[in-house]
């Protein structure tokens, strides 16, 4: 099985950081919106996609950070 290059794992970590950043921005937006429906409901939708991205990207980045980035 092909081992991913170091730069790919670096990219994974960078993507994970971006996901966290997006979440922070959306939570800030939510706070600014003060429950205004257009903000509240669309922010909720974005946060649902963050949950999905966490599963597929951030969680993988976290465990590969610990192990040094090996795959099968």
């Amino acid at each position: 099985m092909k081992v991913r290059k170091d730069q790919d794992w670096g990219r994974l970590r960078e993507m994970s950081e971006k996901i966290e950043e997006i979440e922070r921005l959306v939570l800030d937006l939510k706070e600014l919106g003060e429950e205004m429906p257009v903000i509240e409901k669309n922010a909720r939708a974005i946060l649902s996609f963050i949950h999905v991205l966490r599963f597929g990207i951030s969680d993988v980045a976290e465990i590969t950070d610990k192990s040094g980035g090996t795959n099968g």
């Binding site: 192990s67 090996t70 099968g72």
Partner: peptide, 21 residues
Amino acid sequence: WNPYLETLSRERLLELELNNF
């Protein structure tokens, strides 16, 4: 769809699953 996830080693997959469980 997600090359990182779909080609992750068995050990890392199980680690993820146990964490999430």
